[in-house]
Design a protein around this nucleic acid. Structure first.
Lengths: 156, 156
DNA sequence: TTTTCATGCAACATATAAAGTTGCATAACT
DNA sequence: AGTTATGCAACTTTATATGTTGCATGAAAA
């Protein structure tokens, strides 16, 4: 089964936005993400409803993060994406008439529920500020290790 | 994202097979699962490679579990299904050139890895025998609580 | 030995959902 | 006014899981 990479993608986008002071256009972001501007707008529109980002039309318009990075957790973003499915597996039917299936469901649901809870707990404890700090650390380390500038600047 | 219910489905099938002494045909199993016999054969063929079930052709043929129920864990079945994806989310790209994306990936991968490990650990500690015992308990309880026979017998 | 019943397998068809695309309206800045 | 950006709806494309058909193979029964 194919994995949903929207959370990963949105985080990427947000951290790039955090690096720039001015609004970024959906076209610029789409270039970075190798996708279509409309796709960017669609997903950022969801974040805007949750007051995570703001958008402005016209000249000099675009998208900006509108809250302090340390007040935005991965869980906030997860919710703004409409709480997408976490697990790739599920039960065939909920509330089945078959007692065999009921036994199966209960066993799997316990495991599934615990795994989901663990993931969400992790999401709650990680903020954009932490990710940004991690990125700046890497940039430093990358610079000191003798690489050239073109590879220091994030290009993707 | 739609969830993969093959594990749930296979467990259902196996527990029904465990209730019967004779081989069950893919057609009978397909009726129970409301699907196509070929689909049943496809998935059971995978389990056969791992010596979890046996199949026989011709008259009186069909499928049977060929190991003791307490020696088959959910993890065995998971592996026999070719270790399907557990999480519905993943990173956009692995080993990215962009340092922003690297930071994002690391944060998410930690959470993802731990959740997967938790799930697999649960799979390892649950056997078909346990699920079967759970089912028989439910059947008892169901009988004592005054329901009628047609609803006691698993029909789905 | 012929018929029947079952799996084995490959090729094809269908259904569904995610992603991408197009076109045009709306709003803001120059 | 003209340019640049988002907003939104409708449509197209692509990927993948699932379902389906047809025929070969093998085993038991008649």
């Amino acid at each position: 089964m194919k994995r949903d990479s929207r959370l990963s993608g949105v985080l990427h986008v947000l951290l790039h936005m955090a690096e720039v002071d001015a609004p970024m256009t959906s076209e610029a972001l789409a270039n970075m993400m190798k996708t279509n501007p409309v796709v960017i707008r669609r997903v950022l529109a969801g974040l805007r409803e949750h007051q995570l980002v703001c958008s402005a039309k016209g000249h000099g318009g675009g998208w900006q993060i509108c809250r302090a990075l340390d007040t935005i957790s991965l869980y906030d973003i997860y919710r703004a994406l409409d709480e997408p499915t976490l697990l790739a597996m599920g039960n065939r039917t909920e509330s089945p008439g078959c007692l065999v299936e009921a036994a199966v469901n209960d066993a799997l649901n316990q495991a599934f529920h615990d795994a989901e809870a663990l993931l969400l707990e992790r999401f709650r404890t990680v903020t954009l500020a932490q990710l940004s700090a991690d990125f700046h650390q890497r940039k430093q380390a990358h610079g000191f290790s003798g690489h050239h500038e073109h590879s220091i600047f994030p290009d993707q």
